[in-house]
């Protein structure tokens, strides 16, 4: 889990992708911003976007209205089952070493029942560990949404860092 600042969200996430995911494919679950803004943000911050597959949960419409070769567009942050399916399919079918990045976790607590999200996160982290896939959960430090529950999610994580520690 990594805590970032909401003001520098993209540059912080971009830094994580650059530093933590060299030579790896990144499956980025975007819960905060739609596909176009995510791609713009990553391009501006110099991330190799050809290595990024986006699970977009923030666009107004889903497939077939949006159709990008490196993204799957889902109905919304409240559709945990679809998010789980998309992550599962992407991790199974994208070749090579990969890392799943979920940003930002607070959004799941905003749109779903806390207990359901906790169960989902426990299931997901356990599954990714069993598949030997690194998972980075992004948390915006200055966003109070679901902070108590996020503290519980920390117990599922092997490492909890702040962006300042990552940047050192």
């Amino acid at each position: 889990m990594c805590g970032v600042n909401s003001r520098n969200f993209f540059s912080d996430v971009a830094h994580i992708i650059r530093e933590e995911c060299k030579e790896r494919q990144v499956i980025y679950v975007s819960l905060l911003r739609p596909y176009e803004r995510v791609m713009e943000g990553f391009q501006e911050t110099g991330v190799k976007i050809e290595n990024i597959f986006i699970v977009d949960c923030s666009s107004k419409d889903s497939y077939p209205i949006y159709n990008h070769e490196n993204a799957i567009h889902l109905r919304g942050q409240e559709d945990l089952t679809s998010i789980g399916i998309a992550i599962d399919r992407a991790t199974k079918h994208i070749e090579g070493e990969k890392t799943v990045i979920i940003g930002s976790l607070g959004m799941l607590f905003l749109y779903n029942d806390a207990k359901v999200v906790l169960r989902f996160m426990k299931f997901l982290t356990k599954k990714m560990k069993s598949m030997n896939i690194d998972t980075i959960l992004i948390v915006t430090k200055d966003d109070p949404t679901g902070m108590d529950e996020i503290n519980t999610v920390k117990t599922f994580c092997d490492v909890v860092k702040n962006i300042e520690e990552v940047k050192k």
Binding site: F53, Y63, E69, N70, A71, I72, L74, S82, I85, A86, D88, R89, A90, K92, H93, I94
Partner: peptide, 9 residues
């Protein structure tokens, strides 16, 4: 979602 995610990946 399952079919489309597999295709996209």
């Amino acid at each position: 979602v399952e079919k489309h995610s597999t295709e996209k990946a």
